[in-house]
Structures are given as structure tokens and as C-alpha cells.
Simulated assay, not measured.
Amino acid sequence: MRQPKDIKKTFSQKKKVKPNDLKFEVQHDSELLVFLLEKLSQKSRNDVKVLLRDKKVFVEGEAISQFNQPLRLGQKVEIRWEKQPEEIKIRGLKIIFEDQYLIVIDKEAGVLSIATEKQKENTAYSVLSEYVKRQDPANKIFVVHRLDKDTSGIMMYAKSQRIQKALQENWNDNILERTYLAVVEGIVAKPVGKIISYLTESKALIMYSSQNPEQGQKAVTYYEVAKTSKKHSLLQVNLETGRKNQIRVHMKDLGHSVIGDDKYGATTNPIKRLGLHAWVLSFTHPVTKEAMRFETEVPKAFLGLF
């Protein structure tokens, strides 16, 4: 992990790695599909039709899905790789990427990833399920991974069981980077560290950490101190494993609980929320095999402490 030189500047910049949009000028009258097959010779006919279907092709600034749209000399044609998602009229999440295979969202703290026995509605899952069904009642979404209710940041859902399975069964190979930001109590003396323990869950749904391999699942967490103040440290945290409450438990093991986390030893809550944010998610797309990278803005409340 790289030590930021200027955390406020570094953490305010978005660094999505994505294909550059393409722009072409029509040199002679043609039809749109014929034109695209000529310009995108590396892609199959089916791939080009998918671009049209997903409204990623623009003629003179207007999204076009009709393959036989006539083109005239001098017209401008654009390929915009990232689909512009419909704005969901509900507080708590924002779609930051969508294609025919998956959806990536930025979830606010306080929103459940999926339903529980106590809460069925207004979860990230239920909101996205309603969203895709508005496009087609047969559409569904599938959980790939989860975030704790009080953790904000990036999550990914699949649009089919096939994609869900492809991502989950090859999770360690598919995930290129998964970086969290954690605001913890006190000053962490060691600037870089690695925490290894074995986690098990009690009947009270609390995770416990042990150094005994026979007492739980192995959990490995890497951290780097990015910023400190008189009372807090801001850490960049990367996971080798993804156990339930792993970061929260390991910060307690470190002796510096995440702020607002009274479940795992915190005694302060200066920003009235858990100080944990899923900042960066980078993965290999299960179908296109492209390297996808998404980075969210750091919660302003975090930066306000430093």
C-alpha cells in the first residue's frame, strides 16, 4: 500500500480505471451496425449488438439502439463504455457502474446489504431488485459479497446466478484490490502491519479472535497508517480473507478499535457512525476479462477528524 503524500488531495480524487470512450466521424453514408463493425473490428457482431442494446452508442449525442440507423457524412458517433445508470429515487445508495452482467454501488452507512429477520425492505438488495424489475419483471439480482450495515462504500451484485458463481468461486483470483478506510481510536505506533488470527462466531453473533487454528477460520488483514491526529488514526486496510466483521475484530486485536464500534471495544463515537468505509474495489470482469477499478469519495466526516 502506498503512503499518501497529501491525504485530503489523494482521497478526494476518483481514480476509476476504465476504457477510454471512443469518438468517430462518419466518412461516408452507411448504417450504424456496419459502421461499428468496421471501426470495432476486434469485437464480434454479438458484442457490437450488446453495445447497441445497452445504449452505449451515441450518434450526435443521442443514444441509439437501432442497428440499421442510417448514418450521414460528417456525423459524430461515440462509444461510451460506462452505462449512465437511472437515478434511484431512494436514500441510501448510488449506482456507480452497471452493465448486462453486474451492478456496482456506493452504499451509505446504515443500509443493510440484504434483508434480515427484522428488516425486509429498503435494503440495498431490495432497492436494486425493484430497479432491475422496472426494466424487465423477469430480471433478478444476486448477492456476491456483503458489507456490514454500518459500513459505507462499494458493493457488487450479479445479474445472474452464473455471474454470481463465477465471481464467488474464483473470488481470490478475480479481486485485484479491496481497500477499506478505517478511523480508529488512538495513535497506531507501527506504521505498517499484518494481523493474523482465527475467527469464530458466538451464539450472540459476536466474532471472537484466537491464535488457535482449531478455534475458527483464518483471517489475514494488512494495514498502513495514512494519517494521524491527537486522538485518531486513519488506516488503509486490505484484506487477504473476507471474514465477517474481520476488520473490526482485528482493529480491536491491534488495540485500536474502529470509532463508533462499541460491539468491538470502541469507547468513542465522534462522527455518530462506524468509522469504516469500503473505499476501492478492483476486479477482473467475469465475462469481458477487463480490469475494473472503482473508487468512492472518502466520507467527509472521516477527513474532518484530521
Rank of each mutant, 00 (worst) to 15 (best):
H256R: 01
T267D: 06
V225L: 08
Q236V: 06
V258W: 00
G260V: 07
K190H: 08
A189Q: 15
G275Y: 11
I271G: 03
R273L: 03
A189V: 12
G186K: 07
I206M: 10
L281Q: 04
A189Y: 04
N238R: 14
S257L: 12
K203I: 12
L181E: 11
R273M: 11
Q246D: 02
P270Q: 10
L199C: 05
K218W: 03
H250S: 02
S257Y: 12
E201K: 15
N245F: 03
A182W: 06
Q246L: 04
A182C: 12
K190P: 00
K218E: 15
E201H: 05
E185H: 08
S202A: 09
K272H: 13
N245D: 05
A278C: 15
G242W: 01
Q246R: 04
T179L: 15
K227F: 02
Y198V: 10
K227R: 08
M207D: 02
D262Q: 13
M251R: 00
G193S: 09
A189M: 09
E214A: 13
Y198E: 09
L181C: 13
L276Q: 09
V220T: 13
G260N: 08
T200Y: 10
E185G: 10
G275N: 04
A189W: 02
V237Q: 00
S202N: 12
I259E: 12
I187F: 09
I206E: 11
S282W: 00
R248H: 03
R248C: 01
Q236A: 12
K263Q: 14
Y222V: 00
T200M: 03
L234P: 04
A182K: 01
I196H: 07
Y208R: 15
A204I: 00
G186R: 07
L239S: 06
G216Y: 10
K190D: 10
L176C: 08
V225F: 05
N269R: 04
W279C: 04
G275Q: 10
K272D: 14
P213H: 11
K272C: 01
R248D: 02
K252C: 07
L205M: 09
R273E: 06
Y222L: 12
L239E: 09
Q236P: 00
K231M: 00
G255W: 01
V184H: 05
H277K: 13
Y264P: 02
P270N: 08
L235R: 05
L199M: 15
A278H: 11
T267E: 14
D261A: 13
V192L: 07
G216C: 11
R178F: 09
A219I: 04
V183H: 02
Q217G: 04
A182E: 12
Y264A: 10
A226T: 01
K272R: 12
I196D: 10
